[in-house]
Simulated assay, not measured.
Amino acid sequence: MQTAQREFLDALLTTPSPSGFETRGQRVWVDYVSEFADRVETDAYGNAVAIHDGDQGDDTEFAVGGHADEIGFIVRDITDDGFLRIARVGGSDRTVSKGQHVSIHTDEGPVQGVIGQTAIHLREGQDEEYEDIGEQFVDIGAVEDEDAEELVEIGDPATFSSGVQELKGSRVAARGMDNRVGTWVAAETLRRASEAGADATVVAVSTVQEEVGLNGAQMVGYDLDPDAFVAVDVTHATDNPDVASSARGPVELSDGPVVGRGSANHPGLVALAREAGEADEIDHQFQAAGSRTGTDADGVFTERSGIPSLNIGVPNRYMHTPVELIDTADLDAVAELCAGMAERAAEHAPFGVDI
């Protein structure tokens, strides 16, 4: 991965962007794509779209998107003693939250706190079941409610304070890989397709509020109505030791992009992904999606009269924790695969199924 692209990834990962509060992260994305996009647009809720205008004689529109939002917390109450009661934003995991540093993102800037965890010495003999998020609390050092209210207010979002950690080789751990990596791929697909002079109009999308209901994807899908949409998101690499045998699947870290099959995944786009992967010698994996993909593809494919959609995954360990782990070689390969699909899209459109 080149220096500029890695700096862009790190900027995305270190910019807080909880669902419903994505503005700062979207600004990072818009600033990056503006360097090479023909046009950049945003809508009322902050979805961002960057466009490469293809050949004027070709009306194919090929979109690649990821979601900008991350899971987190939101301040729902302030106790008389100055502690903050919190609620989930998206699928925050109660088993990893206690004892973690968090940042509360206020209009005046970040406020630091910790999610309290009673010391093990004082828990001896107690039930070790994990409390629900709503029963946990953040300590910002305040001694009473008025003290806390000078710094935060009800409805302020919060995220873990973990940063980006380099591991061995090309592996990296951080919070929010889900799904800054998808927005990174969307931007990189646009850049590479633009440099290659793709005949199709190529659209990069960074959506909001995926973690709370695929909301941004539905807005964008209706507004764009592209010929094809590829949703790039993380997917579970199940090759770590503590994954139960019943949950193990074929996806492994460092084995390349993961192409979904079934449910929203359109057979024509699966075929296009196969062709691009084989032609460009990109190692790739397949994953079954019998009922739904769990990604923005589910929000887009039923818009209008049906938009051919595909989910391509970036293998990820420890999803929805502060230490999500990916291989940047996988990430680069996903961008290469999507760019290869974009370059070939005009040859395959319109997408449909033979009956």
Rank of each mutant, 00 (worst) to 15 (best):
A174E: 00
A174R: 02
A174W: 00
R175Y: 07
R175H: 11
G176V: 02
D178S: 11
G182F: 02
T183N: 13
T183Y: 07
W184K: 06
W184P: 01
V185F: 00
V185I: 09
V185E: 01
V185D: 00
E188I: 07
L190V: 08
L190R: 10
R191S: 11
R192G: 02
R192K: 15
R192D: 05
R192F: 05
R192Q: 15
S194F: 03
S194P: 01
S194V: 06
E195T: 15
E195Q: 15
A196L: 15
G197L: 11
G197D: 06
G197Q: 10
A198K: 02
D199R: 13
D199F: 09
A200M: 14
A200P: 05
T201F: 10
T201D: 05
V202L: 12
V202I: 15
V203E: 00
V203H: 03
V203I: 15
A204P: 03
A204S: 14
V205T: 04
V205H: 03
V205F: 00
V205G: 00
S206Q: 13
Q209Y: 12
Q209I: 11
Q209V: 08
E210I: 12
E211L: 09
V212E: 08
V212D: 03
V212H: 04
G213R: 10
G213Y: 05
L214H: 10
L214D: 01
N215D: 05
G216K: 07
G216D: 00
G216V: 04
A217G: 14
Q218F: 09
Q218Y: 12
Q218H: 14
M219Y: 05
M219D: 09
M219A: 14
M219G: 04
M219Q: 13
V220T: 12
D223E: 14
D223S: 12
L224G: 07
L224T: 07
D225Y: 06
